[in-house]
């Protein structure tokens, strides 16, 4: 526990709630996200895991009728105050989605650079930047001879790593991953997990996952959500070996969910 308290917090949710219209999807979540560590969010379907991470880069409010309450802090500053531009938040807090979603009309290179181009930024050395991002996403060796091919022509696992590269090219501080492996085969999943291990050196990572094995493998901290509430948060080792809440134990031992 002391390890957790002494590590610097990159982000923090404080009393965070979220609604879809009249339906409350998150209840009063208070959760730290430790800098340069991997935090996994686990829980049964519909427990609000995805909603939670979408609140961390203000993507939740994009859904018509959706709103949030409470606070989310990034480096100690609230991202939900009036003067904060969601566009700037999203550039610092990147996101990788459940289904790989490269831009089909763009080449591999243009996909990687899309974040900059979409922000109206012309990078001084686009090729270098694309190569860096692709290397970080462990995709460079696969695509270095196919940079001009359409992004959609890659395999599913490569597409997901392309999406990760696209996110990293913006040099975010936090990377949110919403079940990034759920549409991938085991080999591609292993590659992404390996990648997460490397990325933790530079980025604060929050990963939503359905797979407890995956959470145990990749995360330093684990948060267990159930019906919109945070049940338990602790070091991953603690959650998976001696959870203090019986509901967590039931879930990780496969008794429900």
């Amino acid at each position: 526990m002391t390890a957790r308290e002494s590590s610097p917090e990159k982000m923090r949710a404080e009393g965070l709630s979220a609604w879809f219209g009249g339906k409350r999807a998150l209840k009063d979540i208070t959760l730290p996200l430790v800098e340069r560590k991997v935090t996994a969010v686990i829980g049964p379907s519909g427990c609000g895991k995805s909603t939670f991470i979408r609140c961390l880069n203000r993507m939740h409010e994009v859904v018509p009728g959706a709103r949030t309450g409470g606070k989310v802090l990034l480096d100690g500053r609230s991202i939900y105050t009036r003067d904060v531009d969601p566009v700037r938040v999203r550039r610092r807090v990147g996101m990788v989605f459940q289904k790989p979603n490269p831009f089909p009309a763009m080449s591999v290179r243009d996909n990687v650079l899309a974040g900059l181009r979409l922000s109206g930024i012309v990078p001084p050395d686009p090729n270098r930047l694309a190569e860096d991002a692709l290397r970080q996403a462990a995709l460079w060796d696969d695509v270095k001879d196919a940079l001009d091919r359409p992004g959609g022509a890659l395999s599913g696992g490569q597409q997901q790593r392309l999406c990760i590269a696209r996110c990293l090219a913006l040099e975010p501080e936090v990377v949110l991953m919403d079940e990034p492996c759920s549409s991938l085969d085991p080999a591609a999943t292993a590659k992404i997990e390996e990648l997460i291990h490397e990325l933790r050196e530079r980025y604060t990572i929050v990963i939503v996952t359905h797979s407890m094995q995956q959470a145990a493998r990749v995360s330093d901290f684990t948060a267990f959500f159930n019906v919109g509430e945070l049940v338990e948060y602790d070091l991953a080792d603690v959650i998976f070996t001696k959870p203090s809440d019986p509901r967590t134990e039931d879930y990780i031992t496969g008794r429900f969910g």
């Binding site: 566009v87 989605f97 831009f103």
Partner: peptide, 23 residues
């Protein structure tokens, strides 16, 4: 999903319309 991807990259609505949707 493409609009969402672009939004998460910090793109504004009109840039998404031109660079993602139109393209």
């Amino acid at each position: 999903s493409l609009r969402e991807a672009a939004l998460a990259l910090g793109a504004s609505r009109w840039r998404i319309a031109i660079h993602v949707v139109l393209r």
